[in-house]
Write a protein that binds this DNA or RNA. Sequence first.
DNA 1: TCCAAATTGTCATGACATGACACTTGTCGT
DNA 2: ACGACAAGTGTCATGTCATGACAATTTGGA
Lengths: 218, 218
Amino acid sequence: MTTAATHSAQAGRRERKKQRTREALIDAAFTLFAEKGFEATTVEEIADTVDVSSRTFFRYFSSKEDVVLTYQEDQFQALLEALAARPSDEPVITAMRNAGVAMMRACEEGEFGLDPEKFICIQQLMDSSPTVFSRSLEHGQKKQVEITRLVAERMGVDPATDLRPHVAAGAGSCAFRAAFDVWIHGNAPLPRAERLSDLLDQFFALLEDGINYPAKAG
Amino acid sequence: MTTAATHSAQAGRRERKKQRTREALIDAAFTLFAEKGFEATTVEEIADTVDVSSRTFFRYFSSKEDVVLTYQEDQFQALLEALAARPSDEPVITAMRNAGVAMMRACEEGEFGLDPEKFICIQQLMDSSPTVFSRSLEHGQKKQVEITRLVAERMGVDPATDLRPHVAAGAGSCAFRAAFDVWIHGNAPLPRAERLSDLLDQFFALLEDGINYPAKAG
DNA sequence: TCCAAATTGTCATGACATGACACTTGTCGT
DNA sequence: ACGACAAGTGTCATGTCATGACAATTTGGA
């Protein structure tokens, strides 16, 4: 009787069990990270919390940092889709602006499996843990090639011979980094008063206006 | 009799000995990295080559990656000086372009204690070793705040309230990253046919022209 | 020459990460 | 429902990075 209901969602129960273990590991990890910080939390603690062996942890994640970066991957995919969906007559920076801000707002609203609380936690981890930070930068830089490809398509040029898609994609990435940096380190009166997405929007607006200050008269 | 001659250069002979050990470690490290790659080289091997203990290695460098990043620090300092030396009426991107290209050329010419051979080796290490790559990105991102400060000074604005210096500095950084990326992964007919400094120059030229393709008619 | 400080070696420790192999559990055909 | 096969897990062993503690050595200077 239960077969239909039990197998309901996807394929097999093995898959579901794996999925549950994975999510349990992520939850346990973030809880511990929030409590004691990233460095102070050991893989063994995370695994023990879920009652699996450390070895199993590394079968799900290739490193401790990988747990945190999981979400970044989802966000990046969402960004790619949003960018691809922008009308093709939009200038590239404008398209990246719209796609990027939309994605960031979605994060803040708790899109993806990402409660706002966890969103904040991730940002703090980035700031407080050098290894998470550097791995995140690496991830972003590696993914930038896909952005470059999309931008090149949009421009109708070949990224192997035309440098413009590279510089546009790079500028877009820099907007994200700069927004994050200002948002987290900003010595504004009220730290974190602005939403990260608002800052991102402002940065992209500046990119649209041109950056070689002072602007050439003409 | 020997006191004068012995103490000659700087302070004490202890300092000189330390300096020699440090350089020996760097040389040994790069030799081994070039032979067997970064990951395959252990700290113990490096230390053994110089005939010191592994523990001593970590008294000179806080990590294995640190050996490679040593030069980046010098390069960055040179970049800062070059940027500060640019005439203040130059637009910021142009100033970064001139400073950056000059610095990069200096590297290629073997400036700093950096034989061209070692320069190439470093670039390859960046590409082949994820940890070196990510640590390098981290270093660059952290140092970007100083660029931002210089740019803000040049613009005569406060980086705490004006986002423009951040975006300009970020765009500059992205030019370096993009140039490196294209240079190393470039599927151009002749890989590495162009000098990295030439690529960097081209990227900055694009930044000067504006990046929101297609350019707004007007 | 002898003292004090700086440097190094040795030892111990802990965490990350991976390979090998045996064991358990889910899956699927009959 | 049973059993073969595959997938996932635990255990053990191993190697490397990195750091703290303390003793031994070397150096600079009085």
